[in-house]
Amino acid sequence: MTVHSFQEHFDSLIDNDIAIEPKDWMPDDYRKTLIRQISQHAHSEIIGMLPEGNWITRAPSLRRKAVLLAKVQDEAGHGLYLYSAAETLGVSRDELYDQLHSGKAKYSSIFNYPTLTWADMGAIGWLVDGAAIMNQVPLCRTSYGPYARAMVRVCKEESFHQRQGFEIMLTLAKGTEVQKKMAQDAFNRWWWPSLMMFGPPDAESPHTAQSVRWRIKRLTNDELRQKFVDVTVEQAKVLGLDIPDKDLKWNEARGHFDFGAINWEEFKNVVKGNGPCNKQRLDTRRKAWEEGQWVRDAAQAHAQKRKEKMASAA
């Protein structure tokens, strides 16, 4: 087949919703886009453990502690599913880690905000995981097979993450005045960064059109953001908390909620590395990696020794 006919074959698979698998021919840019998107997603799961990890030993009850531990363990698992999906595209795990640790790769900017109170565990589960699910459900039908399969697994596990967060918020919102205040304060701080999680507006999102064409993305940033606002407003009513946006109102003609302007300057700044916790997150991650080196070396030395023993016994 000529390059031209490879391309035609690829396009027809995409147009007919037939999954692309690792050994299939694919355009270089499709491969690069996927490696970038899947690895950013994996890095986000790994860094995403850090803001919550701090609260595992400070959870208010054994039940909350067990739940938070299970959630953080899931996030490690999700990172691993996604890294191995990225590896099927020909990039090595070490290269991916290196991109994260050197600051070359991005991860979701939301994890560069601090978790100041226990209510933040509620707000993260409810809003951050809620936004993540909104993003991830359409990715279960993304065109690259290993990515879609990883996302099916992730989505199955993720819904408990949002529910446990909502439950924390509900308990606080129905609690004492101080607890309710704590819940509202967490909501105020996490609402806008959660809306930023969907990425820049479509008009300024350089990759959206191509990603939609390749059926990597199924919905645009703005479409997903609107969906998230519409469902979350209703959930906030159940909690009895106020959405921290004075411009928020139902638009009868559109059939959606209108919402205020997002501070994209802040978003760009955090992506650039100037958020409140960017340095702390990367330092923690690097430290964990470096201090784990002797464990990785020891395991490999042990495996090698056993292999040699088996060989000499044979």
Binding site: Q73, G77, L80, Y81, S84, A85, E87, R93, R149, A150, R153, R296, A299, Q300, H302, A303, R306, K307
Partner: peptide, 18 residues
């Protein structure tokens, strides 16, 4: 799916967790 491990025994234990 797949995962990294130093030997088969560790691969089974990691597969259990992942």
């Amino acid at each position: 799916g797949s995962l990294h491990a130093s030997d088969a025994e560790m691969a089974i234990e990691n597969a259990r967790d992942v």
